[in-house]
Design a protein around this nucleic acid. Structure first.
Length: 381
DNA sequence: AAGCCGGGGGA
DNA sequence: TCCCCAGGCTT
């Protein structure tokens, strides 16, 4: 447990990206204070009211890089539609994507269904209780495997997400960049240390969720509420007065400016929408015909299928800004008419029908601005 | 190890 | 505006 080669992080003292196990007394105090705090401060989240491993797994898949408040709206609808792993396994992919539309990271939805098929075929329709078997499922990595196995089955499986990383980094004064390998490994060591030493009164399910809850409610990234923290007395970062500076923020990536023209082609109250090619960015999702505007002209690129070039623009409707990952998109939305043939893959949809599709985020924004409806899909905010 | 994948909310 | 969110996969 103590083997630390004389390499990089070796500047021992404060500043090392390394987990130094606390004394047994300190660890006991941390366990007790956190569990006590969680018992009376946890949020009433819908997925905490079920013990169904499938339902818990769905919540974890949705929560990957996605806020609790967003998932709150999607999770019950998804489960109503696909109530079991077996039901999800046999559903149309299109229907799964539609239920996911707006959550982003659409590979999660495809992986979820692929994993459901494995579960139906090889695990009797029940999410595996074994960590290794869980890790073999597509879309299930170290975090999600630990989360489902510990939360649904109360197995002593460790777990580190962005919250837990922040909590441990501050608690033990570990330097390192957010999300980096060295800090991640140190936090996994810390998580494993604690999960292996829980006492009977603290179940793995409670411990792991308490860690994440502390990160979400108290040990927040920008303005941690240290005065309300049950672990303040043990926290190295608080003692040093630099909780906010830990962990070090990830160096920010340059974002690319993208300018698009989005064409609204309407006939008989229907919009012409095109489907993005499979495999690429937002593959299989529907959008208004789109072209990218560059210094050398208008042309479809990987952000847009081919239909846009067969369009005759008419007049401007609205302007939309949209951010996806590291793209900063400004879109000029114009009415247009169809100038050519060969519109595959595209089809006409009434606004209410469009609301039933797996639309891109940009397309949802445009549709919402052009034809506000009472449809639930557009009533979310 | 670094890049890629959506979208949104809080500061 | 920028950062980060109950991450995982590919190169």
């Amino acid at each position: 447990m103590e083997e630390q080669g004389p390499d990089e992080g070796d500047a021992a003292g404060p500043g090392a990206v390394r987990f130094e196990p606390p004394s047994e007394a300190a660890a006991r105090s941390i366990r007790r204070e956190l569990a006590l705090w969680y018992a009376s401060n946890q949020r009433d989240l819908p997925w905490r009211r079920t013990s169904d491993p499938y339902a818990i797994w769905v919540s974890e898949a949705m929560l990957q890089q996605t806020r609790v408040d967003t998932v709150r709206e999607y999770w019950p609808r998804f489960l109503e539609r696909f109530p079991t792993a077996t039901a999800l396994a046999s559903a149309d992919e299109e229907a799964v994507l539609e239920a996911w539309s707006g959550l982003g990271y659409y590979r999660r939805a495809r992986s979820l269904q692929a994993a459901a098929r494995v579960i139906a075929d090889r695990h009797g329709g029940v999410f595996p209780r074994e960590l290794g078997a869980a890790l073999d499922l597509p879309g299930v990595g170290p975090y999600t495997a630990g989360a489902v196995v510990s939360i649904a089955y109360d197995e002593p499986a460790a777990l580190v997400d962005g919250n837990v990383e922040r909590v441990f980094a501050r608690l033990f004064g570990m330097e390192g960049v957010r999300g980096s390998g060295p800090l991640g490994r140190a936090c996994w060591a810390a998580a494993t240390f604690f999960i292996d030493r829980l006492e009977g009164a603290v179940r793995p399910s409670v411990w792991n969720q308490a860690l994440m809850e502390l990160g979400a409610l108290i040990c927040t990234p920008r303005a941690p509420k240290c005065e309300g923290c049950p672990l303040a007395g043990s926290c190295v970062a608080k003692a040093r007065g630099n909780a906010v500076g830990i962990p070090r923020p990830k160096p920010r990536r340059a974002s690319t400016e993208v300018e698009l023209e989005v064409y609204v082609i309407e006939q008989g109250g229907r919009w012409l929408l095109e489907q993005r090619p499979d495999g690429g960015l937002m593959g299989g999702m529907w959008q208004f015909p789109t072209v990218e505007v560059t210094s050398s002209g208008l042309f479809p690129d990987e952000l847009a299928p081919a239909l846009g070039s067969k369009v005759e623009p008419e007049h401007d409707l609205i302007a939309i800004t949209h951010g996806i990952t590291h793209h900063r998109i400004r879109a000029r939305v114009r009415s247009a008419s169809l100038a050519g043939q060969g519109v595959e893959p595209a089809a006409w949809f009434a606004p209410a029908e469009a609301a039933e599709l797996a639309l891109t985020g940009m397309a949802r924004k445009v549709a919402e601005r052009l034809a506000p409806t009472r449809d639930p899909l557009f009533d979310q905010s």
